[in-house]
């Protein structure tokens, strides 16, 4: 499955070494915690990023690999996920929604780091920002892979920014 997806996306094996674990772990997190099937729609490589979503969770990587992981979701995805977890649908991007996005980021980053094959990677605690089409800027020396996913409640993205000086 891995090579098929990699080939269909037209990305190199070297890029897939980084991207692959995040694809699998993102699908696992949504499948196990929410019973949602999410699909990878595409991968783009960019130096900077302008989010088209409403809420983003960040986690820093240090130790064996340095960089940042960002999970960005729109209101519909965030509200549906919060409702699935709590039984109550939020009406705004409140503390529950931010907590949810932070925890999704934590689970995706945490489970992915163990599949990357680099020893001693540490994660920071998640940070969450909200705002319509907010900007996220990675370190200028980082390669950023943007993974675009679709879900039953709309699109979301996972950005993987890894420092090039490693």
């Amino acid at each position: 499955m891995t090579s098929t997806v990699q080939e269909s996306l037209g990305i190199s094996k070297d890029r897939w070494v980084i991207v692959g674990p995040f694809v699998q772990c993102t699908q696992d997190v949504f499948s196990m915690m929410l019973q949602w099937d999410v699909s990878l729609e595409g991968v783009a490589e960019k130096a900077g990023f302008q989010s088209k979503h409403d809420c983003s969770g960040f986690i820093g990587l240090s130790g064996g690999m340095k960089g940042s992981i960002v999970v960005s979701v729109g209101r519909e995805v965030a509200f549906a996920a919060a409702e699935a977890f709590t039984g109550v649908r939020p009406t705004s991007i409140d503390s529950v929604v931010k907590d949810l996005v932070g925890e999704l980021t934590n689970m995706i980053a945490g489970s992915s780091k163990d599949r990357l094959g680099f020893a001693g990677i540490s994660l920071s605690l998640p940070t969450v920002v909200a705002g319509n089409e907010h900007s996220i800027w990675f370190h200028t020396g980082a390669t950023v892979e943007i993974l675009h996913f679709s879900s039953p409640y709309g699109p979301f993205s996972v950005e993987v920014g890894i420092r090039n000086d490693l």
């Binding site: 915690m33 919060a82 977890f85 709590t86 907590d99 949810l100 932070g102 925890e103 934590n106 605690l125």
Partner: peptide, 10 residues
């Protein structure tokens, strides 16, 4: 758990 939503799930 520092995540309120994770505490709710549990």
């Amino acid at each position: 758990d520092d995540s309120g939503i994770m505490r709710k799930i549990i």
